[in-house]
Design a protein around this nucleic acid. Structure first.
Length: 611
DNA sequence: CTAGGGTTAG
């Protein structure tokens, strides 16, 4: 074989992702001693390994190269970008200028800017832009296009637009980058206008707009656009856009909508895409249908770390911690390595069933066995674990020795434990830390106020109560949305204008009487204003989740579960009430609040009263 | 030989 033929074949391997054949050709080159003839083989081979996802081989070859030119560096950068290691791309770049003394060309600039874009690394990106402008390559449209994408991803659509204007021959790639930037920042009309004006658009462009809307939280708009895309008869030849829509359904917590997208996935034949299945697992879990999530998971042929992590977190959030932990055991048996996200789910699971030793071992295993660096969130989970199980000293030790500044959640976990264990002295110390930090969660304030009251520190009590009043005025209005399949109904606290107000009120009153017979005592400690007990109880009575439950009971088919989405956390009293109601009416009530899921059934909640 | 746009878990 002539060497140009071999080169062509290696390139074919990169194009069609055939690493095994590529490896054979590599062996052939080595055996024939051909790599001595020119610099093209190593570069082409590095490129091939990178594009086939064999980063290790690419790096090894790169390291063994006697001399490296700009193309070698460009290939190794692409390999790292593609392996989702953009950070390494930037680290390697400093070696390129320092050890090899090379200056970046347009290929290098484009790869580096892409790395900055996926990292959201504004500062290095700005530096590269400055370097690019004064370089001999400053006219290159591809680099400019990568800069448009970079500014779009960094949330700077106006700068993106200025760079876009400087592109001499704009193509579908540069247009799409800008569309994405506008969509993400909620610049709806600009994004739509741009899409309309595009001389050439493809599925890629539509997907950029739709996913941009989802990521910017404008999920309803993303569905509107998708309908437009369908009406326009665009062929959905790849499932990217479907993943975005599934994320959109999950964000909106609209189960029926998610199911509709799922049916479309099946109809278009994308059930086997692991990206799609992974988003479906998460969507069903977030829409409270954990059984459907399990079903997707168990039907998957090739489960990756995201699939396992999604189902583990789903289980943990739905209060099924034991299953979450045994899924982890099953996962490790298959040889898959957990990552930081997996451990977040596992620690969460442990702390919610009080498995202290297990949680401690997992935390250690994360560092020792897998070389992962725990984040603040992991430490907070650890503090939570120790606090809840009464290991107060250990909890405080973690707080004081962890390599992060503890946040409100971490301090509050310990404070709550102090309060329960009657450790007033420690409690006061923790509360003082919190006061300095400026707590933003009303339930943290309640804890602090109680601790100070027990220590007879009335000045501090009054400081905290003042703080609570300012928090109250900044608070988002609470609402609950009950999902009745075809329709959703939103209720705000104290709402008195609903057409079915009388029926709702009547039902709640009936339930209230029955609950009191069964021993319910309203907990008004969270109602702030100075008013009579009766008035406080009346306030609780009109909390949005109760209105939503009553409406759900009136409108839904007997025996079905009632699904409610709440934008804030469920208050302690409503939590008690929902437990009572679930047993009085023998119905399952599933509430997704700002933090987690609560499955109320037969008078108990899956969260075991801790949330 | 080498570069730029759209998808997943906290």
């Amino acid at each position: 074989m002539h060497h140009f033929q071999i080169l062509r074949q290696i390139k074919e391997c990169s194009k069609f992702q055939l690493p095994i054949q590529g490896k054979k050709l590599h062996a052939h080159v080595v055996k024939s001693g051909l790599d001595l003839h020119g610099p093209l083989y190593p570069n082409t081979l590095v490129d091939m390994y990178g594009k086939c996802g064999h980063l290790k081989d690419a790096v090894q070859l790169f390291d063994e190269m006697p001399s490296r030119d700009l193309a070698s560096w460009a290939s190794i950068f692409t390999a790292h970008n593609q392996a989702n290691l953009p950070k390494h791309t930037l680290i390697l770049f400093s070696g390129m200028t320092s050890s090899d003394g090379l200056q970046p060309d347009h290929f290098i600039f484009a790869s580096l800017v892409k790395a900055c874009a996926s990292l959201n690394a504004l500062k290095p990106g700005l530096q590269l832009h400055a370097q690019f402008v004064v370089s001999p390559f400053s006219d290159d449209d591809v680099v400019k296009s990568s800069l448009v994408d970079f500014y779009a991803k960094c949330g700077l659509p106006d700068i993106a637009s200025r760079v876009f204007d400087s592109i001499v021959s704009k193509n579908v790639v540069s247009w799409t980058s800008l569309v994405y930037g506008y969509a993400r920042m909620g610049k709806k009309s600009e994004a739509l206008e741009l899409l309309r004006d595009m001389p050439l658009k493809n599925l890629h462009s539509w997907t950029a707009l739709i996913s941009g809307f989802v990521q910017g939280g404008h999920c309803v708009d993303s569905f509107k656009l998708f309908n437009e895309l369908r009406r326009g008869g665009v062929d959905i030849e790849e499932p990217f856009v479907l993943s975005s829509l599934i994320v959109g359904s999950a964000t909106l917590a609209m189960l029926e909508l998610g199911k509709q997208v799922h049916r479309l996935v099946i109809g278009l034949g994308y059930e086997s895409s692991s990206y799609v299945s992974n988003t479906l697992i998460d969507m069903y879990a977030k829409c409270s249908d954990i059984l459907a999530a399990e079903k997707i998971f168990s039907n998957m042929k090739n489960r990756d770390i995201v699939s396992w992590t999604s189902i583990i977190i789903g289980m943990a959030q739905h209060g099924r911690a034991v299953e979450a932990l045994s899924l982890y055991d099953e996962m490790t048996l298959t040889g898959l390595k957990p990552n930081e996200v997996t451990f977040t789910g596992l620690m969460y699971a442990c702390s919610h069933v009080g498995l202290v030793d297990k949680g401690r071992r997992l935390f250690k295993s994360m560092v020792v066995d897998y070389g992962l660096k725990p984040s603040l969130q992991h430490y907070t989970c650890l503090v939570d674990l120790y606090s809840r199980s009464g290991h107060l000293e250990e909890a405080e030790n973690v707080l004081n020795s962890m390599p992060f500044k503890p946040d409100e959640a971490a301090w509050a976990a310990l404070l709550s434990a102090c309060s329960q264990a009657g450790k007033n002295k420690t409690g006061v110390r923790i509360a003082n830390h919190l006061l300095q930090l400026g707590p933003e969660d009303p339930s943290t304030c309640i804890l602090m106020s109680n601790i100070y009251a027990r220590a007879a520190m009335w000045d501090s009590v009054s400081t905290v109560r003042k703080l609570m009043l300012t928090l109250e005025s900044k608070k988002k209005p609470g609402y609950s949305c009950v999902d009745l399949g075809k329709e959703n109904e939103v209720f705000y606290a104290g709402e008195t204008t609903h057409p079915m107000k009388n029926e709702i009120f009547g039902l709640l009153k009936e339930l209230d009487a029955e609950m009191r017979k069964r021993g319910y005592v309203p907990d008004t400690s969270l109602v702030l204003h100075d008013m009579e007990q009766q008035e406080k109880e009346r306030q609780l009575f009109w909390h949005s989740e109760r209105l939503a439950v009553a409406y759900g009971l009136l409108k839904s088919a007997p025996g079905t579960s009632i699904r409610i989405l709440k934008n804030l956390r469920v208050c302690g009293d409503c939590h008690t009430v929902l437990k009572f109601i679930s047993s009085i009416v023998s119905r399952e009530i599933v509430v997704r609040d700002a933090n987690r899921f609560h499955h109320f059934k037969d008078g108990v909640c899956s969260c075991r009263d801790f949330w």
